[in-house]
Computed example of a mutant assay.
Amino acid sequence: MTRSTWVRAGVLLAAMAMAGCGGAKVGESSSGGGSGDCGDFNIAINPWVGYEANAAVLAYVAETELGCTVTKKDLKEEVAWQGFGTGEVDAVVENWGHDDLRKKYIDEQKTAVSAGSTGVEGQIGWYVPPWLAEKYPDITDWNNLNKYADMFRTSESGAQGQLLDGDPSFVTNDEALVKNLNLNYKVVYGGSETALIQAFRQAEANKTPVIGYFYSPQWLFAEIELVKVDLPKYTAGCDADPEKIACDYPDYDLDKIVSKKFADAGGPAYQLVKNFQWTNDDQNEVAKSIAEDKLSPEAAAKKWVDANKDKIQAWLPKS
Rank of each mutant, 00 (worst) to 15 (best):
G122V: 02
H98D: 14
L12H: 08
G116K: 00
A263W: 03
I106V: 10
R201W: 09
G39V: 05
D264S: 06
Y185A: 01
G97I: 04
M16Y: 08
A159L: 11
Q109E: 14
V171D: 13
K260G: 10
Y249D: 03
W219N: 10
K302V: 15
P209K: 07
A59P: 04
K274M: 11
T154P: 01
R201D: 10
E285I: 15
E65P: 00
A149M: 08
S296K: 06
K260W: 09
K233I: 12
V11A: 13
D306A: 06
S155D: 14
I45F: 15
Y136L: 08
K256R: 09
N284W: 09
G23S: 01
E108S: 10
P297G: 02
K104S: 07
L177S: 04
L196W: 11
F276Y: 05
R8N: 06
L163V: 09
G85I: 07
Y185D: 09
A263Y: 05
L272I: 02
G20C: 15
N144W: 03
D150F: 09
G237Q: 01
A222E: 12
Y60I: 12
D40Y: 12
A56G: 01
V258E: 02
Q198T: 13
Y148A: 05
I139L: 12
L145H: 02
R8H: 11
G87D: 07
P268H: 00
G36E: 01
A300S: 04
D282G: 01
E108N: 14
G67Y: 05
K318Q: 11
K256Q: 07
N143S: 14
K294M: 08
Y51W: 07
K179E: 09
W219R: 01
E204C: 01
Q277E: 05
E225Y: 12
K274W: 08
T69D: 13
V305T: 06
D251V: 15
G50K: 02
